[in-house]
Design a protein around this nucleic acid. Sequence first.
DNA 1: TTGGATTGTCGATGCGTATCGACGATGCGC
DNA 2: GCGCATCGTCGATACGCATCGACAATCCAA
Lengths: 340, 340
Amino acid sequence: MPTSKDVARLAGVSQSTVSYVMSGRRPISEKTRKRVEDAMAQLAFQPNAGARALASRRSQVIGLAIPFVPDLHMGSIMEFISVIAATARQSDYDILLVTDDEGPQGLERVVGQQLVDGLIIMQVEGDDARVPVIRKLPVPSVLIGIPEDSKGLECIDADFELAGAMCVEELAQLGHETVTLVDWQDAVVRRHVNYVKRFHRGVDKAAAATGTKVIKVPGRVTIAGMEKAVTKALKETNGIPAFIAPEAANQDLLVEALHNLGLVLGEDASVVVNCSDRIAERQRIPLTTIGFEPDEVSRRAVHRIVRDLTDTTSRAHEALELIRPVLKRRKSTIRLRPQR
Amino acid sequence: MPTSKDVARLAGVSQSTVSYVMSGRRPISEKTRKRVEDAMAQLAFQPNAGARALASRRSQVIGLAIPFVPDLHMGSIMEFISVIAATARQSDYDILLVTDDEGPQGLERVVGQQLVDGLIIMQVEGDDARVPVIRKLPVPSVLIGIPEDSKGLECIDADFELAGAMCVEELAQLGHETVTLVDWQDAVVRRHVNYVKRFHRGVDKAAAATGTKVIKVPGRVTIAGMEKAVTKALKETNGIPAFIAPEAANQDLLVEALHNLGLVLGEDASVVVNCSDRIAERQRIPLTTIGFEPDEVSRRAVHRIVRDLTDTTSRAHEALELIRPVLKRRKSTIRLRPQR
DNA sequence: TTGGATTGTCGATGCGTATCGACGATGCGC
DNA sequence: GCGCATCGTCGATACGCATCGACAATCCAA
């Protein structure tokens, strides 16, 4: 493997000049730069990452803490990872995976070894064991999700409260006076306390503001359970029923349950779900969705950690950033009264 | 951050002794080792990865080339990644992501910069653009999937041929004389030529061996299309129909289509699909599956690359390793004649 | 008891890059 | 034409660890 010294020799300059050509931290004449760049190209030179990290004390690598995977819909996690890695590359960073089975010490390790310059922590939950560890680490981190106590931390998440409100407002505006919220599954509700609570708050506020009645039924795992829950909700509803299913895992069950009960989406019932556009569009009846914009969240997370690593000036960017969800109207909702 | 020199000073030994304690490449007396280890613990010492890589010429990092994501079922990709990362840690390696949007040059970059010691390439397809690049790289790599010309490469994949054969044999043994293969979607068939072909070969061989008639219908994207395909297949079948759906994306459609046509799985029809056990078990009627064992494939891939990186002796481990699929009998298949 | 092998430790050096201070060359205003 | 700032380049050094050769101490066999 060629080194910068080889490049220097071939270009007839000193090694430090080669370094300055790469970094641009000192002015270099056009002539010299050209010679060096030609030499680099000719040798197919690539700077050695280890040496670079050692000398500069920065690895140009960001650690990405990925969640343990038992969640049903991990397709979305993959979307995050993919976008995060691609976005990081645009700022000349690479992504190193930190899995959960090393526990929070995994974070201490990669930071301690100076393998990474900063961290992005995915799927942060209410009382996340990683949070206290992160607070002590001497590198910046950005959390995706919001822990119970977010003071002093940089957090990014979808605006679940707004999402909840938007769902209710949309349905209310369509003319529904009663809506049923098919909740997250119990296991999730207990764990991810945080964003579920926020979604509920949004729903409740919008319900109060619009005078909508909200029925909450717990999330189900089986189709039979879902049919029972839907049936119960139907009894309490006058007129055309409306459903909100923020957890993607519930969506299939809800749609199927309604189908089995003889209700046609967009005619006999309104449904708003959260799932990827690709999936929503493929349904027999394309679903109206409230999108949590994982791509946008991912991009913002990378941009923020990169900024932390670049602007050495303004430390402590404490801030909580909420990404606005997007409502996409498709065929699964029905207008009961003329648009205001 | 403490360095090995700090540890040495505190322990009253030389820096090289500290290094030998860590690597074990020279004998160290019990007493000295204890003193050094205590000093390390006291200072919470962690060796600097950059310095280590520079001096030892190995980064202890494996590059993982992840596929571009437009595939529907990317949940499974996440499973691979997760297991790969965890397994790598067990051998003291970390995982660096290499996304596809840098193109094959991404691989050249991470290797050229000596960021990684080796590569695992996921989702290798018939004429994968990364393959020619990999052949030229001066580090070992392990492919998951099999390219057209696999000579001289280390490849691991599920044994699709065996899987195809197992599906047909299972259904034949249950007493079905005609089975319908719901094929991969056209786009996939054209791209991933390789494993689709292998699956077909297995199906054909087993069909010939068992005297089973096989109807092939193309994979569908819509429920209407699937219903039509199923109807057509039913016409050509005498008695209880049987279906094989190796592509996970087709499974929901197939199950729903059969349901809509009034056929009950395990009573009026047999169905064998490929999807994760978790999902298969959750269906209203738990599905008999042919599992492609992504965890096992992932683990083997890591073990092989680690071996390549460790055994510097025996180079060129060219080998094609096929992981045996697993058939799990559930409720979606029906026995038509007593077991032999 | 002595020679040679083995064990345990140290000092010195190199890995490839970034960066600092130094210094000659050039341009500017007066 | 002079001093002075700016530009462009070089040499030297540091970064933290692994590794090699050297060497003192210990052990065993003859």
